[in-house]
Design a protein around this nucleic acid. Structure first.
Ligand SMILES: [Mn+2]
Ligand SMILES: [Mn+2]
Ligand SMILES: [Mn+2]
Ligand SMILES: [Mn+2]
Lengths: 261, 261
DNA sequence: GAACACTGTTAGAGCAATCTAACAGAGGTT
DNA sequence: AACCTCTGTTAGATTGCTCTAACAGTGTTC
């Protein structure tokens, strides 16, 4: 029964968070006080007073000075929607991706304000798919963890004749090639960063994300460090890292220019 | 070679966006002008002047009044990192989730500022896994689309003896039960919202996300509309919808209270 | 009943990010 | 030389969100 009175109501991240917090508190305690909101949000009380006035103006809370705070029907609707996205995202990060709960909690609370209905729907679909489709579900997550939680990239755990990553590293995959063997001047799009769990986040942060176009600068070698260029930035990799990063080679003549629109 | 001079540099979303835009422009044109930044960001020129001064203070751009703008080494590093997240997220939304490119573009630009390194790493891992692991990859995305793009929930496309969703709807799955047959007063966690592509986003937005605890209010029936409660909010479903929403039943005595921390 | 503790509001300030209006420089036109 | 156009800056106002300092109400304690 979502009344279509949405007309031009733009809530800022901050105000959405206040609504979410008021909902949380109203489920935990009989009455919601300014003090509790302030504590949970990590701000001072006058700031909460300010926010409550804004929310009351927009008819999202019932608020009179010095009285308890209550969500209106509309406010509760929005609060539940924000809280729902928060809970869902947090669960997705922890249960599917394996992010640490505390980090997931914080990220979820930042991300929750930037998901369009369509993206939310599709992300929910992915989770439903992974968790209910038998062909995928049998051990989708188990294998995921198995392949991405090994401390060392070439640990025996992942040495399987049917593992595409390993086959590519042995040069047996027609479509993937390691950065070690990619010729100088050639380009590829990153497909797999199969390095130690320790070093991975650092490389990821340097821009080695799946789909990123990289150019090999140094000549191919399995023994020597490799120099590559990603988004116009030079990056030096150890020989082992270069061997463990797999790319889909871009044919000569179809070179891409970094960040292009 | 990321110098660890990160010490206490908190960039706001806005300033990150300016850096990203300056990088884009510097790759498209020989010199970056205030005018172009303003146009791309959708703001007026004085606003850009203001932003450039802030960025220059933080040593992220080289900027002198009336001169062309350039990223410093540090500024370029951050800009590439933001642009990388943007590109990656956008590709994830479009290529994996199937979100419309325009929507994906906008969402990505909002989400890019709220991903911790760990979450980014794990999300990248998921993409690498889906795209390179043969057991999963063979037709992971094909099946995903196949199961979630059908206009009608019970279209023949998804009627397969081994499809868990269909088995559950026929009452043959031990762990999943439809909201139609869930008894009054019983609780379950949403596992699958298998309704028409048209109606799905509306239900999703009403809070029917995977993992959400719902309570059945009306008695079980395959023919009559169902009344359920999600996060303390009542929701009415058509009989067909109720039959197509599958939940994992929560045993009596282990009831959960909505949003709890 | 006076002192104290706790909660919450008011007043006033500051920073981030945006706008409009007005002005300044630089080049091209007549 | 005078004028026009394009670009960019300055100045000043505005909105959102936060703070501190001071004050007000309410209840507890001695
Ligand atoms: Mn939030
Ligand atoms: Mn939140
Ligand atoms: Mn952005
Ligand atoms: Mn962006």
């Amino acid at each position: 029964m979502s009344t279509k009175t949405d007309a031009g109501l733009h809530l800022t991240e901050t105000l959405e968070d206040y609504l979410e917090i008021i909902l949380m508190l109203s489920l935990q305690m009989p009455t919601v006080r300014v003090r509790d909101i302030a504590r949970l949000k990590g701000v001072r009380m006058p700031t909460v007073t300010w926010a409550l006035r804004r929310l009351a103006e927009k008819q999202l809370v019932l608020y009179a000075a010095r009285e308890y705070v209550e969500l209106t029907a509309r406010g509760g609707e929005i609060a539940r929607s924000v809280a729902g996205r928060h809970r869902f995202l947090s669960a997705f990060l922890v249960k599917i991706l394996g992010v640490a709960p505390k980090v997931a909690e914080k990220d979820a609370c930042g991300l929750e304000h930037h998901l369009s209905p369509q993206t939310l729907d599709r992300l929910a679909a992915l989770v439903e798919y992974v968790e209910t489709c038998p062909e995928v579900q049998k051990d989708f997550l188990t294998r995921f963890r198995y392949c991405f939680t090994q401390p060392k990239p070439s640990s025996a755990a992942c040495r399987r004749s049917d593992c595409r990553t390993d086959r590519a590293r042995r040069g047996e995959d027609p479509d993937l090639i390691s950065l070690g063997t990619l010729p100088a001047g050639a380009q590829g799009t990153v497909a797999r960063v199969h390095v130690s769990v320790k070093r991975r986040p650092m490389l990821i942060r340097s821009g080695l994300l799946p789909g990123t176009v990289v150019e090999k600068v140094s000549p191919p070698s399995l023994r020597r460090p490799a120099l590559i260029r990603v988004d116009g930035q030079d990056l030096k990799l150890t020989a082992a890292e270069a061997r463990s990063i797999l790319v889909a080679r871009i044919p000569d003549g179809e070179e891409k220019t970094g960040v292009g629109e």
